[in-house]
Design a protein around this nucleic acid. Structure first.
Lengths: 345, 345
DNA sequence: CTGAAAGCGCTAACAT
DNA sequence: ATGTTAGCGCTTTCAG
């Protein structure tokens, strides 16, 4: 059936350790026996059993990656980045999709621990509850790198994210520079750092530019399209209408755009829009939506590199929070210079 | 450090086998010792080492899934389907992205074998060469389920795909029913079953409807956007222009649409378009592109189920080719009834 | 009902 | 330079 070291050792009438040595290129083996063994290995089509090796070595060369929904582009690119770095370093990745269910997340975390993964990259949805599974990982010295969303837990941890506050700042400042003063925002759940930080950046941009914040123009959605649509609709009912919108997630942006169209308004003529994470792989959306972009693949790569570092030197104990820069990609949804403001800047 | 069966056995002054029995709920254990053990397990925070278990059991409860590019929506939905079924059956998935590189595919196949995965789901890019790694899997009785693309190999194998020929047939027939006679096609590489079959369906639809096939209207791309654009451009130069296009992949469709627009033509007024695999998650592409859709998540689920079947009953040895139905989703890119044909149907 | 013991396939002292 | 041995953590006969 499956060839083991023992099989080839017996065939050659030598010990398994010698065979093991040539398989692993370790210590000295007499050149001629080495050749002999190599040949046998080849002929017998030997293939090492990595689970046995892992048991012995206490390292599976496997890391787990947990995401809320693999079909969201954000996560697929993230995974792509992680996979790129990790696979070229001899690691294999176990993927788990929690479907945004915190209990499933807990379950998978435990499963990964039992599978003896060497580390995990986690885009958590469990931001508030303390997690027993997570504690276990920490107690077992399994490095965990958080991405996208940061949990509210007592201990320190490694993470790589983008500067969400700055992202909003850039978006809003762009609108201000175009002359807008009545700028609305639809942000995500405030319990999540992404939702909260993005709102903070909006506030700061307005304040820094001496624009009074109208709490009426601030809406909190749940990152889903429907909430984008509905919040936009309700914003459109305000007397003193917004002239520009900043929507802090891709799906909410799609919803908001539809609400605007359904109301018979034009983008950017009537309302300018800056979205978030809008990857239009078709290139066919028109007008193309100006958007904040995070380089998901880089986030994945940086997270993977940080993980590798943790896996290598036990030394460095200081947790790191790596913050990458967002970028504003100007497309068409804000027009070029719409001077539709009363006040001059 | 990490608690093992031995640790709790020693603490309780009983044997590991007893502890193992209660962990696995196997054979009889006196109720009171069972309770005692359970309590200790809990207190000591025991968590089984699945690697050790796998070594003993000869099953890792892990399957590998190999795709050419995880960032293509087709594959992300496929993975989602696979993950859904497999995870609820206690399996874990190892994901590998080959970046459309056949050598990497070979590498990963070997790696998966060494990791002792129980089975693999494979969207191959290695359609023509015989694969040593694949042979090894077969020789070791590791079930492999092919999806998306089928390889040209001698042995039989399990697969789940859609009826690509029928997909084209539906697309082209739809165009014919709308009155079109000059219908062009951009298909994918003919070495791949997807490209080849899709062309066959096109031919058949025309023939069945008594339309002479003009080889001039048949273009072969490589599934990428650029080839869609360029092939469309060249088709536009033909004197007796097409009135409708069928483009057999999403990216090529995007390219073709852009070529049509760049030529100053309108969709659907000047040219009707049927695309393939167009998932517009934004819902903002206008005109919305009528498209052939495959239910990727179902493909994943069916593949996972077939795999589970193979993993369970050793019995059934007949390989299966499961062919799912494609569907035509009529959106806006063909108009409603454009009677721009000279001949009547 | 429970324990002892063997062994899954491999690695790594230690000994020769 | 090579072999012997123990053991990673677990399951599972086989005895008792």
């Amino acid at each position: 059936m499956k060839i083991t070291l023992k099989d080839v050792a017996e065939k050659l009438n030598i010990s398994v350790s010698t065979v093991s040595r040539v398989v692993n290129n370790k210590s000295y083996v007499k050149p001629e026996t080495r050749e002999k063994v190599k040949k046998a290995l080849e002929e017998m089509n030997y293939s090492p059993n990595l689970v046995a090796r892992s048991l012995k070595n206490k390292s599976t060369k496997t890391i787990g990656i947990i995401v809320p929904d693999i079909s969201e582009v954000f996560f697929t690119y993230l995974i792509k980045g992680v996979d790129d770095i990790l696979s070229r370093n001899g690691y294999t990745i176990i993927l788990s999709d929690t479907g945004e269910n915190p209990e499933k997340e807990e379950l998978y975390l435990n499963l990964l621990l039992e599978k003896q993964i060497d580390g995990v990259i986690l885009a958590t949805v469990n931001v508030n509850k303390e997690s027993k599974a997570l504690d276990r990982l920490f107690n077992n010295n399994i490095p965990v790198i958080f991405v996208d969303n940061l949990p509210n837990i007592k201990r320190n941890y490694d993470s790589v994210i983008i500067d969400n506050s700055k992202a909003s700042y850039m978006a809003v400042e762009h609108l201000i520079n175009l002359g807008h003063r009545r700028i609305g925002i639809i942000t995500g759940k405030l319990e999540e750092t992404t939702g909260y930080e993005r709102l903070m950046g909006y506030r700061k941009a307005l304040m820094d530019n001496g624009i009074k914040i109208d709490e009426n123009l601030i809406r909190v959605g749940d990152f889903k399209e429907k909430s984008g649509y509905e919040n936009m609709r309700s914003l459109l009912e305000i007397e003193d209408k917004v002239t520009a919108m900043y929507v802090a997630s891709s799906k909410m942006t799609y919803g908001a755009v539809k609400a605007i169209r359904d109301a018979g308004l034009r983008i950017p003529e009537d309302i300018a829009v800056v979205g978030f994470d809008i990857h239009d792989n078709s290139g066919l959306i028109s007008p193309a939506i100006t958007t904040i972009l995070q380089d998901e693949e880089s986030i994945g790569k940086v997270a993977a590199e940080l993980l590798l570092k943790r896996l290598q030197d036990e030394g460095e104990k200081r947790y790191q929070k790596i913050v990458l820069e967002p970028c504003l990609e100007i497309r068409e949804s804000c027009g070029y210079k719409n001077i539709k403001t009363k006040a001059s800047k």
